[in-house]
Each structure stands twice: as C-alpha cells, then as structure tokens.
Design a protein around this nucleic acid. Structure first.
Lengths: 221, 221
DNA sequence: TTCAGTTCGATTGTATACATGACTGTTGAC
DNA sequence: GTCAACAGTCATGTATACAATCGAACTGAA
C-alpha cells in the first residue's frame, strides 16, 4: 500500500467515528477493519492506538476497542473547557493580532455572513470553523492553537447538530460581529467574555444538546 | 511478557523522556529500545505511537521517532494555557466543592506546609502535585480534570527545575494559602486570578525558566 | 429449570519475516 | 579538490504466524 498508510487509516476511522458511521459504544473489530481497508491488522492497530490516545476510542486490554460514548455530562464539560480556551484565544488575539490576522478574521466573518443570510447550514458550518480558526491563529500561541483545534474537532459532531436548531445560525453570526469588534478594538476581556458565552452550552442550548443526543441514540438501537 | 506490556512500556519510555534520560532531539531507535526492554519491535512501536499522539515525540514517516524539543517559547505557551485551565478549575472548585473536597484540599495544603518549612524540595514537589490535583477534583469536571492532569504531567520537568530557584518553594506555598482561602470562601473569580498568576511564568520567573532550559541544553551536547 | 464448571472458539497481543524507502560512503567526473 | 551520482546498508512499515486470554456455549448436577 502507499506510504503514510496508517496516518490515512487513522483519519479515515476518526472520520467514520465523528460522522457517526461508527456509533458510540460500537466495537471496532481489527480483522473486519483490516478487510475493509485491504490492509493487515498491524496498521489498523496502530491507528486505533492513536485514536485511543486522543480519547475517541477506549482500548480495553484483551477486549478490543470500542467507540467512546462521552455522555451528555462529559460533552457539556468539554464545551465548558472549549469556551474557556476560546475565550483565552480571543483575549490574546485582541492584544496580539497583526494586520494580516485582521484581514483573515474579517474575510472569514464576511464568508459567515454570506452563508448565514443564504441559510446554507452546511456552508455556514464550514465558514464558522474558518472564523474560529482565524481567532486561534491570531492568538499567536502555537500551543493554544493546537489545543483549540483538537477540541474543536472533537466537538464537531455536536456542534453540527446544534446548528440545525432553529435560528441558531443567525444568532451565532450576530454574536460573531461583537467578537470581531472586541478583538479588533483590542478589548481583551470583552472578547473573552463574548467568546465564552458564544461557545458555552447554557440555558436553552443545554436542552437542545440533550435533545440532539437523544436523536443520535435512536440511531444506535 | 506479562500482561499490559505496552502500557507499561509507554509509561517507562514516557518517564525516561520526562526525566531527561532521553534528551530532546534524541532519536528513539525501535530495535535498540526493543533490546533494552527485552521485547520485539511491535509493542515498542505501539508505545511510541501513543507518545506521538500525546505530543511527547515526533513521528517522522520512514525516518523514526525523535523526542520533541518544545523550545522556550512553546513551554511558555504551555504554562500560559495551564494557568488558564487551573484558574478555571479553581473557579469551578470555589462554586462546587463538597465537604470531602474541602478536607482533601486542606490536608494537601497541610502537607505542603510541612515540606515547605522543612525545606525538602522533593517532598514539596510531590505534595504540590497533590494540592493541585485536589483542586482539579474539586472542580467536579471530569474532562477538565483529565486535561489539567495531562498538561500538568507534560510540564512536570520544567516545574521541577523551577522549584530549585531560591525561595520559589516558600513563595509558592504562601500563594497556596490565598488560593485555599478563596476556594473555601466560594470566591470563584479570586481563586481564578490567584491560580492564574500562581502558574503563569511572568517577570523574573521567565528568566528563571530560560536559565533552567540552558542548563538542560548543556547536558545534551 | 437454573446455576456452576469446563471446554472450545474467537480475538487480541507479541514475535518474526519481508519489502520499501532513507542515509552513508565511495567513486567518478568536472 | 569539490560536487554529484550510485550503490550498499540499515531502519522503518507492513504482513503473517503464533501464543495467550477472554467470552460464550454446552453439559452436568442440584
């Protein structure tokens, strides 16, 4: 097989987990996966071990790997931490952003506006990622960037479900405007607070999350 | 070999990296490691892949694994994020701690006092970990606990070097007192601010960090 | 009928063998 | 004398073989 096999395998399996092709709690059979990808068990194992280290699957010794089911509570906690990290990125970005960061942020913001007004949730979903990523980059902290990107990726499926909620997309975009303003004005603490509440799962959004998880559960059984 | 081999191997190699037995930049030869631990290359590879996912080693395709050298800047960034996460844990702990959390926190604080006054940096180093861990637990966020624990572990070697700086131990302990007070009083934002500055590498401590890294570098060459 | 004990099957964990790509050292040409 | 190309060696990546353990099913007795 081509070079970099098990890196690609890792991405493939990770993607299948994040998109829900493999449901939470499902067992990942090494032989079956090996057959599916046309490789031997070795690279499959190495991919699964990586996913285990990331926290996407649970590796039970001698008992195989299963897709982790974080549960509503853990997901809530992850959003909580994500809010804090994003807030930090925003605060740093407000203080450290360059002219180039400013252009990228505004450009991403403009793209979000287009997809939000056109009502295209899929497009908005992608542009929203760009927007947040541009904030991470503007923080000029490589480590924070990596942490935010990883957690953002981990929360991707739930974020996607949440966007489906009525009006969430428009509300999200209007929140972006304030965030951009605060960052470009250099108001670090304002940016932090706005981003924290932008990410946090509070009030009605908590109920939305629970509801969307229940939909996911139904698919499993 | 006994069960759970590659978990133990991972911990062994991780420990060797964190203690500096393997220097940053050093290449980790699979065959050599296999010989050293008396196993085949397979479990060694699986251990290295895990370490790669954590970020302790860099896996360059077809070119082997090397111990990551974060560099002063990256280490500074990691402390920055650590400060934010610890601050968050402290804030949550102030709001959510139970009677049991209170006892654990006070007990860890008392142990720190003993080792600080006795001047035993090694003991303090250990008790300090207990202290911080008790805060993570009191936050009652399983995910935050895992993130804090992982990053704390990652920063262990640098933290250890920093304790050697004159008076750092006593200053550290006196800061603990204020943190405990704020958490037990339920003053979330005070706890956050105190923890953030307790962790942060600012002012003189930045110079101390650079100096301690230079000592580490000398050992390499 | 139910529960405990045992045996068999299936799957994971490890070792070994093989293929492919990267590094080193030498040789040849300019 | 220096640089480039080539070949040989060695390490990594993958496949396969084997061993060890877990779980399930079956049998027997209470």
């Amino acid at each position: 097989m081509a070079a970099g096999t098990f890196h690609k395998l890792r991405d493939e399996i990770e993607n299948d987990i994040l998109t829900g092709f493999f449901a939470p709690g499902e067992r990942l059979d090494e032989v079956q996966l090996a057959g599916r990808f046309g490789v031997s068990r070795t690279p499959i194992r190495e991919a699964l071990i990586q996913l285990g280290a990331i926290g996407l699957v649970e590796l039970r010794p001698r008992r195989g790997a299963i897709v982790v089911d974080p549960g509503a509570n853990r997901i809530y906690e992850m959003f909580e931490v994500m809010g804090e990290l994003e807030g930090m990125a925003g605060a740093l970005a407000a203080r450290r952003h360059t002219e180039q960061d400013r252009d990228k942020l505004l450009s991403a913001h403009a793209r979000c506006e287009r997809s939000a007004t056109s009502g295209d949730t899929d497009a908005y979903y992608y542009d929203n990622e760009l927007f947040h990523h541009s904030i991470y980059e503007a923080s000029h902290s490589g480590f924070l960037l990596s942490q935010c990107t990883a957690l953002h990726r981990r929360l991707r499926p739930y974020r996607r479900l949440q966007l489906r909620v009525r009006n969430r997309m428009k509300v999200s975009f209007s929140e972006h405007a304030g965030i951009v303003e605060a960052i470009l004005a250099g108001e670090a603490e304002t940016a932090r607070a706005l981003l924290r509440s932008h990410i946090a799962v509070q009030g009605d959004r908590f109920g939305d999350l629970i509801a969307s998880l229940a939909v996911g559960d139904r698919k499993v059984s």
